[in-house]
Nucleic acid binder design. Structure first.
Lengths: 341, 341
DNA sequence: ACAGCTTGTGCAAACGTTTTTACAAAGGTG
DNA sequence: CACCTTTGTAAAAACGTTTGCACAAGCTGT
C-alpha cells in the first residue's frame, strides 16, 4: 500500500506537506503541489480513509437504518424510490451510504449503537413510523445527528421528514365521497405504526365530516404485504353489508386487494372502488390502474439526506418537522360512479 | 468519547488488557475480564471502528457497486430482491454494506478506486453485465477481492455469479413453441449487455432447433424500462406480419409490453402470448399474470455475498463461475393456445 | 537597514486501536 | 527444591493520517 510517506520520500518533502497538497492547503507553493501531485498519480496514491477518519473524527458516511425485517421492506417499490432519493443527495454531497437492517429488538439497539458509538458513521437516517421506537429513543438521548423518516409518537420533537398522512387519507376518502360513495372501508397496516393510525384517523374524519357511517367491521388491520390485502377481502366481502369503496394503506396491499376482489368475482371499479397510498410505479400498470396518493417518496429520501447533512454540519434547522406534500393521482380504480345496493 | 484508555484507567489495568478482553483473548483471567466488562457496560464503551480498521487493515464492510444510473435500477423490483439476498448474508457474516452508484465513465473508476485503494471496504460486489466493463478491468487488474453479478465478455475468468441466460431463453422460447407458436418475437435490452445477448442467442437457438423463422424485424432492442416495452409494441404490431408470441427480456419491460398491447386492442394471451424474465413479485399480479423465468434473484445476491466473503478470507474457491439455476414459472400470459393467422 | 508581516515547509504529537515482546508469578515435574 | 512451563499482564511500537507550532526565507514599508 502506498502511503503519504512514500510520496513524501520520493518528492523530497515532508509527509505534512503531502497532506497539505492533498487537502489543498493555501500555503503550498504551486511548484511543490505539482511535483507531489505528479508522484501521487504515478504511484496511484489514494488516502487511507481509516487513518483520515481516525484523526478527523469524521467518516463521510451516513447510515440508513431499516428496523423492520428486510424481507417485508424490499418487496415494496416505495423502498427503492426512497433509497434512490437518499443516495442521490448523499452522493452529491460526497457521502457514502451504509445500508443496515436489524430485526430483533435487542439487535436493533446493538446495531445502531455499534455504528454510532463506534464512530462508524456521521449520521443516521432512520426509517420508522413505530408509535414508540426504542431506536428513536436511543438516538434522541445520545444526541447524535439523525433524521427520522416517519413519525414517532413518543418523540415528536426529533428531526423528521414525513407526510401529512392524516390529510392525505382525508383527501383520498373525500375523493371517494365525491364519486358518490357512502359506504367506505379501510384496509390498514399494523396498529403500532403512526402511519397506519394517522391514515385511519384522516379516513374517519372525512367520514365524520360528511356524516357517513364509521363501521368498525369495515376497517381491517394487516401488514404491508399483498397477502394482507388479499386476506382482508375475504373478511370484508363476506360481511352481510359490504362497502362500495375502500381506502387501502399501501399500493402493494392494494394489489392483494385487487387480486382478492377479482378472485371473488368483483369488478374494480364497477363493484368496488379503490384508492391507495404511495403511488409506486406499478400502480398505474395494474388492471385497472389504481388511484393512489403520491407521497413524494423520492423527495422524502432526498430531503432526509439533505437535512441530515445539514444537521451534521451543525447548521441551524428552523423547521425540525418537515412535511413533504402529497398529491392524489386519480386513476380508473376510483373513477366509475357506483352501483348502489 | 470513551476510549479503551478510560476503561483501562478505571479498571486499573493496561489498555492492552482491555483490548484483549474485548477480543476474547484466551489468556485473560476471568476476574479481570468481568471487572473490565462491567466498567465497559457502565461507561457504554464501543470500540472505535476507525482505529481498529487502521491497525487491522480490515473494515468488515462490503461495497455494492451499481454502475448504471440509479434511476433505472431502482425501478426494478429485481434490485430490491438482490439487495435483500446480499444484505442477509453480509449481516449474518458480520459485514456492513456500503451502497454505491456511479454514473459517468470516469466517475465510476474514481469511485471504486477511492473505495478500494482507500481501504474503505474489504471487497466489492459489482452488478454488471456490460460486455466490456472498465470497472471489471480495473478490479481484475488490482487483485482486490470482488465478485461480479453478471457476466463480462472481456473478463470471463473473474469470480462471478450469473444465470445460464442462454439456456433460460431457450427454455422460455421452447415453452412458447410447445404451446403451438411458430412466430415468436423478442423484446430485448441494450445490445452492450451480455444478459441481452445471451438471452437473444438462446431464443435464436430454440427457433433454429425447431426450424422456425428468425425474423430480424421481430427483435426489438430497448432498455430495462416499461417505456421500452411499450414502444416496442408500436413497432412490432405495426408490421404487416406479426408474431403470435413474444419473449421479453425483463418483467418490467413486459409490463410495458402488456400496456402497449392492451392499448392497441390486443388481448394477452389470446392474440399474443408472453414470457419474460426475472419473475418479480408483481408479475403474478399483472392481468393476466405473466409467465416469467425465475432467475433466483435472492440466491444470486446471497451467493454473491457469501462467495465474496470466502474470497476475502482467502479460502480457495473451486468454482469461479457460479451459475444459479433458473425455473420457468408458467402463468396465464402464455397458456391459451394460439389463434393462427 | 531593520522590524514586522507573509509564505512555504518541517517536526512531532495526536487519533484509538492491535500486537509483539517481555517478564513476573504461579503451577507442575523430577 | 531447582527447573521448566503456563498464565496473566504491561510497555511500547505501529497503523496512516492531520494539524498546531516553529522557523527560515522572502517581502514590505519606513
Amino acid at each position: 500500500m502506498v502511503t503519504i510517506k512514500d510520496i513524501a520520500k520520493l518528492a523530497g518533502v515532508s509527509p505534512s506537506t503531502v497532506s497539505r497538497v492533498v487537502s489543498n492547503h493555501p500555503r503550498i507553493s504551486l511548484d511543490t503541489s505539482r511535483k507531489v501531485k505528479q508522484i501521487m498519480d504515478e504511484l496511484g496514491y489514494h488516502p487511507n480513509m481509516m487513518a483520515k477518519s481516525l484523526v478527523s473524527k469524521t467518516t463521510n458516511t451516513l447510515a440508513i437504518l431499516l428496523p423492520r425485517p428486510a424481507e417485508e421492506l424490499f418487496q415494496n417499490d416505495f423502498f427503492g424510490e426512497l433509497l434512490r432519493g437518499i443516495l442521490t443527495q448523499a452522493n452529491r454531497a460526497g457521502y457514502d451510504m451504509l445500508l443496515t437492517t436489524a430485526t430483533g429488538e435487542h439487535d436493533e439497539i446493538e446495531t445502531v449503537s455499534r455504528l454510532v458509538r463506534g464512530r462508524r458513521v456521521d449520521g443516521v437516517i432512520l426509517l420508522s413510523s413505530r408509535v414508540n421506537d426504542p431506536i428513536v429513543a436511543f438516538l434522541a438521548s445520545s444526541d447524535f445527528p439523525f433524521v427520522l423518516i416517519g413519525r414517532s409518537e413518543s418523540h415528536p420533537d426529533v428531526l423528521s421528514i414525513n407526510n401529512d398522512n392524516k390529510q392525505a387519507a382525508y383527501d383520498a376518502t373525500q375523493h371517494l365521497i365525491a364519486q358518490g360513495h357512502e359506504r367506505i372501508g379501510f384496509v390498514s397496516g399494523p396498529a403500532n405504526l403512526t402511519v397506519s393510525n394517522d391514515r385511519l384517523q384522516g379516513y374517519r374524519q372525512a367520514l365524520e365530516a360528511y356524516k357517513l357511517p364509521i363501521r368498525s367491521d369495515w376497517t381491517v388491520e394487516g401488514e404491508f404485504l399483498q397477502e394482507s390485502g388479499y386476506r382482508a377481502m375475504s373478511l370484508i366481502m363476506s360481511l352481510p353489508e359490504r362497502p362500495t369503496a375502500l381506502v387501502v394503506i399501501d399500493d402493494v396491499v392494494a394489489f392483494g386487494v385487487l387480486r382478492g376482489l377479482t378472485e371473488l368475482g368483483y369488478k374494480v371499479p364497477d363493484d368496488i372502488s379503490l384508492v391507495s397510498f404511495n403511488n409506486i410505479s406499478l400502480s398505474e400498470l395494474a388492471t385497472p390502474p389504481i388511484s393512489s396518493i403520491d407521497i413524494g417518496t423520492y423527495q422524502l429520501g432526498y430531503t432526509a439526506a439533505q437535512t441530515l447533512i445539514r444537521a451534521i454540519n451543525e447548521e441551524t434547522i428552523h423547521q425540525k418537522q418537515i412535511i413533504i406534500p402529497h398529491r392524489l393521482m386519480v386513476r380508473e380504480s376510483s373513477l366509475t360512479p357506483i352501483k348502489r345496493g
